[in-house]
Design a protein around this nucleic acid. Sequence first.
DNA 1: GCAAACTTCGCAAGCGCTTGCGAGATGTGC
DNA 2: GCACATCTCGCAAGCGCTTGCGAAGTTTGC
Lengths: 303, 303
Amino acid sequence: MELGYTASPTASRLATGRTRTVAVIVPELAKWFFAEVIAAAGRVLAEHGYDVLLVELSTAELRRAFFTGPGLRGRADGAIVVALQLGADEFEALEGQGQSVVLVGSERQGAGSVSVDDRAGGRAAVRHLVNLGHERIAFLGIRHEPRSTLGGVPPAQRLLGYRDALAEAGLPEDPRWVLTAENSVDGGAGAVAGLLAEQGLPTAIAAASDELAFGALRTLRGAGLRVPEDVSVVGYDNHGLAGAVDLTTMDHDVSGQGRAAAHALLAVLGAAPVAGPRVISPRLVVRGSTAPPVDRAGSTLPP
Amino acid sequence: MELGYTASPTASRLATGRTRTVAVIVPELAKWFFAEVIAAAGRVLAEHGYDVLLVELSTAELRRAFFTGPGLRGRADGAIVVALQLGADEFEALEGQGQSVVLVGSERQGAGSVSVDDRAGGRAAVRHLVNLGHERIAFLGIRHEPRSTLGGVPPAQRLLGYRDALAEAGLPEDPRWVLTAENSVDGGAGAVAGLLAEQGLPTAIAAASDELAFGALRTLRGAGLRVPEDVSVVGYDNHGLAGAVDLTTMDHDVSGQGRAAAHALLAVLGAAPVAGPRVISPRLVVRGSTAPPVDRAGSTLPP
DNA sequence: GCAAACTTCGCAAGCGCTTGCGAGATGTGC
DNA sequence: GCACATCTCGCAAGCGCTTGCGAAGTTTGC
């Protein structure tokens, strides 16, 4: 006999107090990075019989309401928090809602986490440019909008890496060549446009994200400049479309981050001890947007 | 007195039989289109107090298991099905699981739906090329992989639109210029590479998706061809990064589709009658990847 | 072969809500 | 002022599971 019987999840939840659901909390769903993390985490969770509940905290109001209100209470057993830099009160609120939490892109004592060594990543990206012989290298960083819910510290790490690489190479840092922009194509395009107009041209640009780099490429090409002949550009993320525009970039195994976070949370939910923070080392992916600098006369400078 | 009291959702679900949750079912989460639809629908649903449960049916096995097993029974009140072309059995299975369903990208008698007039869209894209004076226009369509869960009919509509536009302009259709590829950057790149190698060059390419178009651009530029001077390219989707590569494309209001689907489902859940299918008319977005053809001698042909 | 220990099984209580029903309270009409 | 209709409110039943407890059945040891 075949028994097509299935227990009612709701009744089971009531009786056990466990929902077999985990929430994935992101500041913004429709961005490549978040979609990728969610997809990767979701697959692992689904394999283990967990439902995934999507929570997008895209505005400050939503964020406040989420942490001060009932939030996840009774809806999920645990949460994967991606990219949000939680305040201590927020973190405690989440635990107060009965959630086990795992962080992606931030760390906190006593919580599982997976993050990236962005300082090393930034340094590797810039070192790649230095190794190619570049000496005038601009940095295009991420500026958080006031309304943003990211509250992001980590991109600052990439800037530190930039400085590390410069110092390492004995290159001076020119503050006018450290730009910031909203993390979007338009942000990157605008910042580089400003650079072209005012600061003269570096031979290379290190962007703190691929989206910024895409914008940089657009502006450079729109101005008739060739990449990499006139300007090299290196991004950060290894975005799904980085290959499409032949962008050299730093890969930080985004889906691996999602999978690792899911496994960490499953472990905690399975009453395993909290594993230490897991940190991922980014890896340089060389494509066609970087090359040795060419001086005005057209000759290649020595590395 | 402030009452921080909140009812237990689980108990409430058990008692009422309603979960205040809706599932969003997609074949693949980490693609721009799906992420965008989910985000837009999710916002509307969240505003109305619904939780969103993510279901990714990325393989044929998952798909079968989902529809033959318990699926959503007891987990959600309704489902938004994006892009999957459901068989009658699958649709009924979903209803048998107690779900109200709304379709995105397909239609079915008795169900709410939002879809796109892809034939008109395809025709508009190609007509744009025709109007610019192109006469040798290739079509780059989507081929579904055997393992795909899309089972997609709709992209075929875009091909019909291509034929419409050609016929309308009195242009012959050359079957060698109708290509298909997996819907990805690499797919598009590969197909166009084949085109360059074998069929000679059309003056324009109409792609059935922006991802395919991105691939086409990569191959063309990699081969030293200029876009739009040597070849015009028009995409389809108005992908978030289409602007970054200056791609002319068809916009079909992707987030609008998500919002409309959410509203339709909310209406049904609120016991409103099923609204008729909603169909969206795509809109041409002209950017820099299309221009009049230039003949070998460099002069512009008359339109 | 019988007492003690162990195993299996079924049953009832309870998880925290919703909801319908009846008791009590309030209001109306002649 | 009394009978009747109306309203409000509190209480208990029940949603469909899980789980612990006790009864029944089974095994072991001397």
